[in-house]
Amino acid sequence: MNLFRLLGDLAHLASIFILLHKIQTTRSCRGISFKTQALYVLVFLTRYVDLFFHWVSLYNFVMKIFFIASSCYILYLMKYRFRPTHDPSLDTFKIEYLLGPCFVLALIFNYHFELAEVLWAFSIYLEAVAIFPQLFMLQRTGEAEAITTHYLAALGVYRALYIPNWIYRYFTEGVVDPIAVVAGIVQTGLYLDFFYVYFTKVLQGQKFELPA
């Protein structure tokens, strides 16, 4: 464990609490892509199958359980509790375009051709692009509540912090995980446009609005 990774994980945790807070306080999931949230459930379920056979640490175990449970809970809130506040006509990204290629990539690029490894690689690729439906929705509506942008920023920061973590690990432990690194860089890259607007507008106290 190093500081970058710890802060990254904390940013990830923060993003989930921000999202829960947004849904609970506004009693609405307006502006949140159900598809992206559903993809995260799939990401966690396929990545953490090793919960059953690979013990890492208590920290790792608790976090995995939390990510699975909280993502399922968010899906429940969106699907049942606050269903009327979700507008499927804005959430129109076709996730088949993400699932198919990620699955094919996982079949080709994995560390070992066995079920758990292919699922793991699939989860890495899918996580990298799971934010697409959300960003697409943002693009369509052209604006977002501040709290929704804080959620996205925390999620982006989480991924961005994993990059110095990998650099640090390369120099201190000599380990590189090329699949995670390449996917992680792609994933972070997807947030660049968002970050630009977030830092130049939201953090200056302005409304998050995309240029027309």
């Binding site: 990830h12 690979h54 890492v56 790792n60 976090m63 990510f67 560390y111 490894e117 590189v176």
Partner: peptide
């Protein structure tokens, strides 16, 4: 030698 990366990250 193809050693699998240790999967200790989340």
């Amino acid at each position: 030698p193809s050693e699998l990366p240790v999967k200790d990250e989340l």
